[in-house]
Simulated assay, not measured.
Amino acid sequence: MQEKAQKPLVGVVADVKFIAPHPFHTVGDKYLRALVQAADVVPVLIPALTDIVAVKSWLSRLDGVFLPGGYSMVHPGHYEGELIDGTLYDEARDELSLTIIRAALDLGKPLFGVCRGLQEMNVALGGSLHQNLHLTGQYIEHREDKSLTVEEQYADAHVVRCHADGQLARITGLEEYRVNSLHTQGIDRLAPGVTAEAVAEDGLVEAFSVDGATAFAMAVQWHPEWRVMDNQPNKKLFEAFGAACRRAMK
C-alpha cells in the first residue's frame, strides 16, 4: 500500500485564557478546521511559553506559521499607545506572536495572519493601531453586533477593494469582494516595508503583504476561516498558504 505524502506542519499561535482555576493555551476550532480542510496542512499549537523556550527552536521544525484572531487586543505598549481601562490584553500571546513573526520572516517561513494576526504583524514590523475604530469618527462600524446569531455576525459586512496588481488580487482572481467584519482594533499607521493589498470602503487597510518576503507573508483583517469551504476567495487564500508551506518542506 502506497504511503500518503507527508503534509506540512504549521504552527498556530495560542491565546492564554484563564479557565478557573488554571491558565490554558487555546486555539479556536474554526481556524484549525480551515487549515486542515482548505490549506491541507497539519496544525500544531504553539504555546505562549517564550519565557522558557526559544522560538527559533520551534520554528526549525515547522513549515509555516499561522496567526489566528482572538478576543484580546495587542498591548498598546508595543506601539507607544495608551492603556484603555476595561480592555482585554494577552501579553503572553503578544510576546510569542511578535517574536515569532520576526523570526519566521528572517527564516523565510510562510506566514499568514488573520484579524488579530494582522494587527500583530503590523505592530511587529513597526506600525501602530487604533484601539477603538468606532471612536475615531473616521470609519464605518467594523465590530460585530453581539445581539445577532453567530451566523449573522459572520455574514458579509462590507466590500474590500484589492490592489489591481497585488498578490491578493492574483490569488483570489478578484479586485473587489465582500467580507465579514468582527474587529474593534484596526491599522492606524501601516508598518514600513509592507504593501497594502486591500482597503475597505472607508479607507481602512484590510490586508497587506510583506515586501521582499521569500515566502508567502500576508495578513487580512477579516475572518477567511469562517465557512471557508463555501467561500471561494477565502478558500484560495488558505490554498495559497498551504502551497507555500508545501514548498517550504523541500
Rank of each mutant, 00 (worst) to 15 (best):
G86R: 01
A215F: 09
D40K: 14
P21N: 14
K17W: 07
V114L: 02
D29Q: 11
G77Y: 05
F238M: 04
R93Q: 10
F112I: 06
A215G: 07
A155R: 07
P224W: 11
H158F: 05
A248E: 00
G193W: 01
A38S: 06
A104F: 06
G193L: 10
D145A: 14
V210N: 01
K56Q: 06
G70C: 12
L9N: 09
L9I: 10
D202Y: 14
Q119D: 01
V27P: 01
H142Y: 02
Q185I: 09
M1Q: 15
L125T: 00
V150E: 15
Q153I: 13
Q131M: 03
L190D: 04
R93T: 11
P47L: 02
I52Y: 08
E95T: 15
I46F: 02
V114A: 02
I19C: 09
A164H: 12
A248W: 07
K235I: 11
F66W: 06
S209H: 02
V210M: 02
E176C: 11
P233E: 11
K250G: 15
A207L: 07
A20T: 08
A207V: 06
Q138Y: 03
E141S: 05
P192I: 00
E225F: 06
F18M: 15
D165L: 04
L67M: 10
L98W: 09
W58V: 11
P224M: 00
T214E: 14
D156V: 07
K56A: 10
K235D: 09
T50Q: 08
M218W: 13
K30A: 05
P43E: 02
K146Y: 14
E80R: 14
L237S: 01
A157I: 13
V36N: 09
F238P: 13
L237V: 08
A54S: 15
L83R: 13
V13S: 08
V42A: 10
R143L: 05
K250F: 13
A198P: 03
C245V: 01
D51V: 08
A92M: 07
V199Y: 08
N122I: 01
D94L: 00
N122Q: 13
L133S: 03
I101G: 05
K30I: 15
F66N: 04
G186L: 01
D211S: 14
S57P: 02
T184I: 06
F66Y: 12
V205R: 00
V44L: 13
K109V: 03
S147I: 12
V12E: 02
A215C: 08
A248H: 01
V179Q: 04
G242E: 02
L59Q: 03
H75N: 13
I84C: 15
P76S: 06
G69C: 00
D15H: 10
D63T: 03
Q6W: 12
L98F: 06
A39C: 07
R116W: 15
A34L: 08
A240H: 01
T214R: 11
W226L: 10
D145L: 11
A38H: 04
L98I: 02
V53W: 03
R102P: 06
K250H: 15
A104I: 12
L174P: 09
E175K: 12
Q153L: 04
D156C: 14
N122T: 10
A191G: 14
R246Y: 04
V220A: 03
G137M: 09
